Amino acid sequence: MKSLLATTVLVATLSGCTNIYFDNGSAAQANKAPATEQWHHNFAAALYEGSEPVDLSEECPDSEWQTVHTYKSFTNGLAEAAVNQVGPIWYPKTVEISCAQVPYKPD
């Protein structure tokens, strides 16, 4: 049982190396805007996309999107390793969206 747990933790840790960044604008324009996170689900050896694409106009209704970061977190890898014991079924990733901060305009 300990070896199964150790193997699962090792696989989950090593699988957390996928990072993709999409930036809207230059790095100089980037700010520390709060980000929202959601999981994105792929199935059948990641050949079928189970989640709807992220609608950035819905995520950032009052401003433009600043950064979209997709990655496999430790939690994603752990959940994937637990489910995929029986075969290549589920491949979750985390999508983190940062919106540009709207400057404050007093009324």
Score class of each variant (00 low, 15 high):
residue 3 S to V: 13
residue 5 L to S: 03
residue 5 L to C: 10
residue 5 L to V: 15
residue 6 A to I: 12
residue 12 A to D: 00
residue 13 T to C: 02
residue 13 T to R: 00
residue 13 T to F: 03
residue 15 S to D: 04
residue 19 N to L: 07
residue 19 N to F: 03
residue 19 N to M: 00
residue 22 F to M: 10
residue 22 F to R: 08
residue 22 F to K: 02
residue 24 N to P: 03
residue 25 G to T: 12
residue 26 S to G: 15
residue 26 S to R: 09
residue 27 A to V: 11
residue 27 A to N: 08
residue 28 A to G: 06
residue 28 A to S: 11
residue 29 Q to G: 04
residue 30 A to P: 01
residue 32 K to Q: 10
residue 34 P to M: 13
residue 34 P to D: 15
residue 37 E to Q: 12
residue 39 W to K: 13
residue 41 H to S: 03
residue 42 N to P: 00
residue 46 A to V: 06
residue 46 A to D: 14
residue 46 A to Q: 06
residue 46 A to F: 07
residue 47 L to N: 07
residue 48 Y to M: 11
residue 48 Y to W: 09
residue 50 G to H: 02
residue 50 G to L: 08
residue 50 G to P: 03
residue 51 S to V: 04
residue 52 E to Y: 06
residue 53 P to I: 04
residue 56 L to N: 05
residue 56 L to Y: 11
residue 57 S to D: 11
residue 59 E to S: 14
residue 59 E to L: 13
residue 61 P to W: 10
residue 62 D to S: 15
residue 66 Q to D: 13
residue 67 T to R: 13
residue 69 H to K: 05
residue 70 T to N: 07
residue 72 K to A: 07
residue 73 S to Y: 01
residue 74 F to C: 01
residue 75 T to L: 15
residue 76 N to T: 04
residue 76 N to S: 14
residue 78 L to I: 05
residue 80 E to T: 10
residue 81 A to V: 09
residue 81 A to D: 12
residue 82 A to Q: 13
residue 85 Q to G: 09
residue 87 G to M: 13
residue 88 P to T: 11
residue 89 I to S: 04
residue 90 W to Y: 15
residue 92 P to G: 07
residue 93 K to N: 07
residue 93 K to S: 07
residue 94 T to L: 02
residue 94 T to Y: 04
residue 96 E to M: 11
residue 98 S to P: 00
residue 100 A to T: 14
residue 100 A to W: 14
residue 101 Q to A: 09
residue 101 Q to H: 02
residue 101 Q to R: 12
residue 103 P to E: 15
residue 103 P to V: 08
residue 104 Y to T: 10
residue 105 K to L: 09
residue 105 K to V: 14
residue 106 P to H: 13
